[in-house]
């Protein structure tokens, strides 16, 4: 099969063919999700646990809905009511959950690499829903699907990613995915929010937003975390908006048919102009949310197939 991964830990481990496989399957789930009856049974009988060490409403509900539409039993565990606060380590939590025989484990954690570590200790398929500043693979896949539907392709596009790149796992996963699909990448950020060594990734760097947007087909805005706005990384919200907030004037430097993306939740008036975000002719932000459910359904479907095949091989092995 074209998708061979056991876990979905990052885009780094996926081949371009695997990425295309996910996107193709997700297209079918987009259709399913637009029907009145949205039920499928591909995960029937399977248990999905959403383990969120960091609070999230959007990603968690997207995964929850994806699992439910595929017929899985979904349980949400958030850190607020888990024993992590009582001093249990990540590994202990993983072992405890593993003993409950889940089939799919969706994990978000504040430390880079934490999901990789957890995946080494459990028997089920693990989906990374964001680890520290490392990766957020389903976000990059849903962005890719959104771009492909809007632009008709996911290759040879000029894509500008703008904002807090240094602290963004969304930016990292997107950089890797869009790079693998052979696009021209531009990063736009003040130097304080640009990760070091990023010039080696094969992208162009800009601290002037207008320069960076020139001729771009896709403008991907990133969320600026509240805790970065206090003068530590940027002087103030208003100066940031003036230099790096996307508005109609700056967008005019991009290609005339450029689309505007944002992973949400948005800070209107900080990184993006409110009217622009709502402009259905330019903004695909609502499409991203819709594609999110479909892409997550596709990922879980593919991982579940691999899990079933693996277990089948084990049983055959035991009988032989």
């Amino acid at each position: 099969m074209a998708f061979r991964a056991r876990h979905l830990l990052g885009i780094e481990q996926l081949s371009p063919l695997e990425i295309t496989t996910v996107l193709d399957l997700a297209e079918r789930y987009v259709d399913l999700n637009r029907r009145t009856v949205k039920q499928s049974d591909v995960l029937a009988g399977m248990t999905q646990i959403n383990l969120f060490f960091e609070n999230s409403t959007r990603t968690q509900s997207s995964f929850e809905l994806a699992g439910k539409r595929l017929g899985a039993d979904v349980m949400n565990m958030s850190v607020a009511n888990s024993s992590v606060k009582k001093g249990e380590t990540l590994i202990d939590t993983a072992m405890t959950l593993n003993a409950m025989h889940p089939d799919l484990l969706v994990v978000r954690h504040g430390a880079s690499g934490a999901v990789n570590l957890l995946a080494q200790k459990v028997d089920c398929a693990v989906l990374n829903a964001g680890d520290g500043r490392h990766e957020h693979p389903t976000q990059a896949l849903l962005d890719a699907l959104t771009i492909r539907r809007a632009k008709g392709r996911i290759q040879r596009l000029t894509i500008a990613i703008c904002g807090d790149i240094a602290h963004s796992r969304v930016a990292r996963s997107n950089l890797i995915l869009l790079g693998k699909m052979e696009n021209r990448l531009r990063l736009i950020a003040p130097p304080t929010l640009m990760p070091s060594g990023v010039e080696d990734f094969g992208c162009e760097l800009f601290d002037d937003m207008r320069e960076g947007l020139k001729g771009a087909d896709v403008v991907m805005m990133l969320r600026l975390q509240k805790e970065r706005m206090d003068g530590g990384f940027i002087p103030s919200e208003r100066e940031y908006y003036h230099r790096y907030g996307l508005d109609a004037e700056k967008l005019a430097y991009a290609a005339p048919d450029a689309i505007v993306m944002h992973p949400g939740p948005m800070n209107r008036g900080v990184e993006i102009d409110g009217d622009l975000a709502d402009d259905i002719n330019r903004s695909v932000i609502q499409d991203q949310v819709e594609m999110g459910v479909a892409v997550r359904m596709a990922c879980m479907d593919l991982l579940a197939r691999n899990l079933r095949a693996e277990r089948g091989r084990k049983i055959v092995g035991m009988m032989a």
Partner: peptide, 8 residues
């Protein structure tokens, strides 16, 4: 580059 890609 390494620390940036790994998000450390």
């Amino acid at each position: 580059k390494f620390a940036s890609i790994k998000g450390i």
